[in-house]
Design a binder for these strands. Structure first.
Length: 561
DNA sequence: CCCATGACGAG
DNA sequence: AGCTCGTCATGGGT
């Protein structure tokens, strides 16, 4: 039956343990999973993304799952957790008492802590040995592990605030597994030449590398008296270097030096040095060698790991710089032969989300426009850019600058939205946890460790307030984005449309060239469906907030916008 | 060796 | 505006 829950655990040797409802479970070949998926489309239950990855690696792409880890992060907030933490929370056990495997010695061997074939120890916690992988040693144990997953799922059900969010966040873990396995198309030659443009050609020996380093340092140091030695990698030394030429700065951040370009001829080469250093250390040849794999047909892809939600507000995160690649590298992200990218980003997502989650009808009315800042500006009787800064400032907790005055206009014209933000701010200031529209707990950890001055305490509270009001918008926006993304993942299967990058409000989809237009149209339909499924409706059942995207079909990421 | 901090890229 | 994230560097501490 579609949507039926089936517990699933796959050992590292590929043994598949299935726990279907009302059965004692069975051990099967992975092809059986593919058959069940095709015929019944169940909702698979598993501990975390690692199972999703095993399936994707076997070329099985399930439609639905209940990911215990993703759901745990929704219910309880915070970042990634292992089975032992999930289990402990569901049984209201103190996380600090979770046992860890003691080093193997005579003493630890002497302690008898019950039946090692039973995953739950006498203290009620999962045994560390099981958590660390011993569940995978035998088919019998794998069955127990799948069974425990179903037990945990049943315990999560009553704690869930929105089942729809559980489903989309779980599906997002599947999407993450896929993005990890398939990678981001990356044209090696183009990437290498971009890097070389910043840091010089790829060195073949350590001497060459050192010479290039010295050459780049000299471009900056030449503006100082001969014999000067400063380590440009040390902010402290850069500060004293600048003091030497008569520039006094509290820090040496780029935006501050930008303003001092004309103060001394050393500033410009210093900024250039910094840009090159960023490429060299973070996005250089080493990065390419470490993270880009070339397949048998000679095409290269960048592989990182993805998390469907990590950190505070539940945005996706990614490693190896997938979320902060310098724009200069985007020409290297190229569709493979016979393919195109469909790229789309959500327009003005945060104010639209605010209108929706706050239920502000007037702001919702403004969202009907392609540019919703225009009607807001009219209401406030200010310039459009002022209105924009004011709205963003309200969501981020701006306290100074131009937006501050227009803020009073916002309070007057959009009291519901502003009241929503103020409530989040107050709650966070008081260290009270928040919950996003989709039901994610945003923890306000009271980290006020030592005694601090009255002044510091106030500024920390204000920072918490800003964090809280932002988390309610950013968090809900992340949920909405993921709903959109996983709908496209599901609906795009028949077009062979593969999502290869998620960037907070932007999707990059790799698709056979002939399917590009269909995929682009589908992506827009998925946006409307996401709005319909996710966003709050008014009393009449109408969806009052309009969401828009900018969609294009391109060959290289750099062609966008 | 861990940890805090500065710096910087992206949204 | 000020918010999130990951990554790499130095420099302090153990």
């Amino acid at each position: 039956m579609a949507g039926e829950l089936i517990g699933l655990a796959i050992t590292d040797k590929g043994v598949v343990a299935l726990l279907e409802p009302g059965t004692t479970g069975r051990v099967v070949d992975i092809r059986e999973v593919a058959r069940i998926e095709a015929e019944d489309s169940p909702r698979w239950v598993w501990w975390n993304k690692s199972t999703a990855r095993q399936l994707v690696e076997a070329n099985i792409r399930p439609g639905r799952c209940w990911d215990l880890s993703a759901t745990h992060r929704l219910i309880f907030g915070g970042g990634n957790s292992g089975p032992e933490q999930i289990w402990a929370r569901l049984h209201e056990l103190d996380a600090t008492t979770i046992p860890t495997r003691a080093p193997v010695n005579l003493f630890s061997l002497a302690v008898d802590s019950g039946d090692p074939d039973e995953p739950v120890g006498p203290d009620g916690h999962l045994r560390p040995e099981w958590v660390e992988g011993e569940w995978s040693n035998t088919a019998h144990r794998a069955l127990r592990w799948a069974e425990l997953a179903v037990v945990a799922q049943q315990l999560q059900v009553p704690l869930v605030h929105s089942e729809a969010t559980v489903f989309s966040e779980s599906a997002c873990e599947l999407l993450c597994a896929e993005m990890e396995v398939v990678g981001l198309p990356f044209e090696l030659g183009v990437g290498e030449s971009i890097v070389a443009g910043f840091v010089g050609p790829r060195p073949t020996t350590a001497e060459e590398a050192n010479a290039e380093l010295a050459r780049r340092d000299a471009e900056v140091i030449q503006h100082l008296p001969t014999g000067s030695t400063f380590d440009l990698r040390s902010p402290d030394q850069v500060k004293s270097l600048l003091r030497r030429v008569g520039i006094e700065v509290p820090d040496t951040r780029a935006w501050r030096l930008e303003a001092l370009r004309d103060a001394h001829p050393i500033v410009e080469p210093l900024l250039a040095w910094r840009r090159a250093e960023r490429i060299l250390t973070t996005f250089g040849f080493q990065w390419i060698d470490d993270n880009i794999a070339t397949n048998l047909s000679g095409h290269s892809r960048l592989h990182g790991s993805w998390s469907g939600s990590d950190g505070a507000a539940g945005r996706m995160t990614a490693t190896v710089g997938l979320h902060n690649m310098p724009a200069e590298l985007r020409p290297a992200i190229a569709a493979e032969p016979g393919h195109v990218f469909v790229r789309a980003d959500l327009g003005q997502i945060e104010p639209r989300i605010l209108a929706a989650v706050a239920g502000d009808p007037k702001l919702a009315a403004a969202s009907q426009e392609d540019d919703m800042y225009a009607p807001v500006a009219t209401q406030l009787r200010v310039e459009r850019d002022i209105a924009k800064v004011a709205v963003l400032g309200a969501m981020y907790g701006q306290t100074t600058g131009k937006g501050a005055e227009a803020l009073r206009g916002l309070e007057r014209e959009y009291p519901i939205a502003m009241g929503f933000l103020a409530a989040a701010d107050r709650s966070a200031q008081g260290s009270h946890d928040l919950r996003t529209y989709g039901g994610r707990l945003v923890r306000m950890g009271s980290t006020n460790s030592n005694e601090v001055s009255e002044r510091d305490a106030r500024s920390q509270a204000a920072a918490r307030g800003r964090y809280g009001r932002n988390a309610m918008v950013q968090g809900a926006a992340a949920e909405f984005f993921k709903t959109w993304a996983v709908l496209m993942r599901a609906r795009g299967r028949t077009l062979n449309a593969q999502i290869v990058l998620c960037l907070h409000d932007e999707l990059l989809i790799h698709v056979p060239e002939q399917n590009g237009p269909d995929a682009a149209a589908l992506l827009d339909r998925c946006l409307q469906e996401a709005a319909h499924r996710w966003a709050p409706r008014d009393q009449a059942g109408n969806q009052p907030v309009r969401f828009v995207s900018d969609t294009s079909i391109i060959s290289r990421w750099s062609e966008a916008k």
